[in-house]
Design a protein around this nucleic acid. Sequence first.
DNA 1: ATTAAAATATGATATTTATCATGCTTTTAT
DNA 2: ATAAAAGCATGATAAATATCATATTTTAAT
Lengths: 225, 225
Amino acid sequence: MSTCEQCILKQFNSLKYLTKEELVRISDCKTSKIVRKGQLLFNEGDLINGIFCVRDGICKLTKLSANGKDQIVKLVVKGELIGQRSLVSEESTNLSATALNDMQVCFIPKYEVMRDLHENNDFTLDVLKVMAKDLKEADNLIVNMAQKSVRQRLAEALLYIHAAFGTDEDGMLTIVLSREDYANIVGTATESVIRILSQFKKDGLIATKGKQIRLEDITALKRVE
Amino acid sequence: MSTCEQCILKQFNSLKYLTKEELVRISDCKTSKIVRKGQLLFNEGDLINGIFCVRDGICKLTKLSANGKDQIVKLVVKGELIGQRSLVSEESTNLSATALNDMQVCFIPKYEVMRDLHENNDFTLDVLKVMAKDLKEADNLIVNMAQKSVRQRLAEALLYIHAAFGTDEDGMLTIVLSREDYANIVGTATESVIRILSQFKKDGLIATKGKQIRLEDITALKRVE
DNA sequence: ATTAAAATATGATATTTATCATGCTTTTAT
DNA sequence: ATAAAAGCATGATAAATATCATATTTTAAT
């Protein structure tokens, strides 16, 4: 198994603030795991007892609503950490993580991360910074959900995925989601998403090829009401 | 002016993890301020360059939506800190703070808090814990906003204010909000809030006396659909 | 390759919520 | 004390969205 010291991915998360010795310790106790597309990495309420570092693949973090629908709260890509929030609060996780394509993740046990949080202030501060960013994005999401129409929210979801995760060589969004996933991001019925996407396509705002979506008119998408 | 070392309110926030010397330093550079009901403590986009400690009163944290409506993201009461998120991210604030009744706040300049964040790991860890809790609540709010009806959201807002901030001797919610404020929590039109509250009253779920509200049937409020 | 299952698509209709209008009540300012 | 403003209340109507039904297309399993 490869070592954390040499892993380039840590540049994309707080682990870059660990010392060589701390990284060696983590390397020695970490485990590695493959999660296939559609499979759960963990479920809401699980005590995960550690954090995951995403080596490859993409997953969605969801929360089950009382009405039985999943709400997608965040998309996580290669390089990011998952589980810091629950770890810091020392409680079981409030979200489920499901692979959107085949994933490879490393698991670092709680005691090791907690030790670093207590001993390495640079690391703690960076975890704090990441969480502050997450909180800001969550605040924005609350406002969007509360104040904007389904149409606007869907347009913004497309723009967000475009801006945050980019496109492939054909200009297609790299993150490929089902209509149901989009409904679970926007908080609406799957049929509504299908209808609105059809409309966007008819109006030339997007192009689709199966599940793949390409943004054709970003300016117009930003103006959607 | 009273000193931070003796201030009982710090027991309710992360400042309790500061050492005596750190508290003395903060006492020496802090300033104090009165903010009248309805007045702004700071506005979205302001560079506040420090954090506030609420000594007395209650305020709402809001974010202006593109459609011109305010969204209430959080209510802050005596004892809590405001502004940690922006401070940690080293950016101007993403929220506005408005006093819901007369407030007294202490202001601690950024350089002093940053120094403590860098030097006192216990303090940093507690700030991290508080932010983790805020993030969890924000995630819950996202799900509620996205998946629940206006009726449900309003019922939950009442239950939340009841549980988090309590009641006076008559059983009235201690936090008194206008119908418009409720609309800005729930993300709906003020008329809709008025209508639904009238219905709740007619159905015996709540009682009202002017702007004051008493929850009469918590079980039924939890069952609202 | 074929069948079953899942995802997408679209229409018809019901429900929820917003908007506009108007009147009443309470609070605030002078 | 009184006027003006702000907040509350309710009806009528419009707009947005959900739900149910059904058909088609795509994907997965054998």
